[in-house]
Design a protein around this nucleic acid. Sequence first.
DNA 1: GATTGTGAATTATTTCACAGCT
DNA 2: AGCTGTGAAATAATTCACAATC
Lengths: 214, 214
Amino acid sequence: MTSLVRSVSESTVRRLSLYLRTLERLQAEGAETVASGDLADRAGTTAAQVRKDLSSFGSFGTRGLGYRVGPLHARIREILGLTRPWRVVLVGAGRIGSALFAYPHFRERGFRIEAILDSDPAKIGGVWEGVTIQSAAHLEQVLARAEAEILILAVPAGAAQELAERAAAAGVRGILNFAPVRLRLPDEVEVNNVNLAVELEALSHALVLAEVQG
Amino acid sequence: MTSLVRSVSESTVRRLSLYLRTLERLQAEGAETVASGDLADRAGTTAAQVRKDLSSFGSFGTRGLGYRVGPLHARIREILGLTRPWRVVLVGAGRIGSALFAYPHFRERGFRIEAILDSDPAKIGGVWEGVTIQSAAHLEQVLARAEAEILILAVPAGAAQELAERAAAAGVRGILNFAPVRLRLPDEVEVNNVNLAVELEALSHALVLAEVQG
DNA sequence: GATTGTGAATTATTTCACAGCT
DNA sequence: AGCTGTGAAATAATTCACAATC
């Protein structure tokens, strides 16, 4: 069987996600086709970049016309692994956890938060939209019962490594980590780090640079 | 006057932010010096990368010994523009806004949220830790009174462009944008986008790839 | 006439490897 | 002996430019 999903670079993958959202807007606008230049403008890149990205998985644009919005959308969903739902467990029922749980774009894309865990007794037993917050002590059982594939880690830095290790041992395949620490885990566990301080600090660096350079 | 801040690549800047946090942990552990290899392990990169990153702004490691933790920390703070406070206004008092407002790492690094805005009448007038949520209709006045330099945009996609334009016109210099849209703004406004759907989709892509490749 | 697909050229980033300090 | 600083080499990502196609 030939793979439907070829290896593409990390930066291409991130742009594909942007294209996907753009294509959804185009669909809502009733567009049938889109040219690379138009897609690039809307997604914030260049026409050549769009074409390179799309050609990397043997694309099917039409010369003179552009790409058909529907089929391209379907193909990118496939590449990104969004054609089936993902079972997700959220660890950390603080503010970030709450924001992620309610983030509409996650559910739209098929990321199903099956369970919520926290270690704060004041939070355990609480209910969010029908989902009861359980004790993080039961991480392994919860992951097993949910057959969770993805863990969203939204806990303080000090708690992240231990929880991540336990989740990895329990068979979780990917972790989206919001704790500002580098997780040390077996290679087969995919980790994607989101560090909000990095984002703000990159901005502040850009601002001082702009000051100095006029 | 020679600039204290040289141009370094975007990826270097992001790693510097990681090194900064690592150095803070080392300081807390009482370490006086750190070798590039150790810093690399803790920050999740390589020794050569660390040395290249640090040498790009004329660093002052000691051969045979490593880098002195305190001075290196101070130098990176300088590079990242963290030696002075930043005046920040938060737009969007939803769940993401709430998480960001309470995120301790922002305040620790001198990002001061001076005002909170929202357009939902149910939220306006609410108070978060002494800060009253004001109407987004008054964006310009609030930005002027706060002399805000940075805007954190945590609003729905549909509202982001208009608010960003108004903030740019009112003189904001940088925007940390959580809305999943590409903002079109004058070049002098720095924009850093955080797109949570992209992060999760990059993870799901990695997982399907791992499945296919064994 | 418009727009893709893609090799080639360019630019950026990472890794190597080792001379040079302490 | 240990570790930095850095040119050189290798690799990766982006941009160019144009023939191929509709």
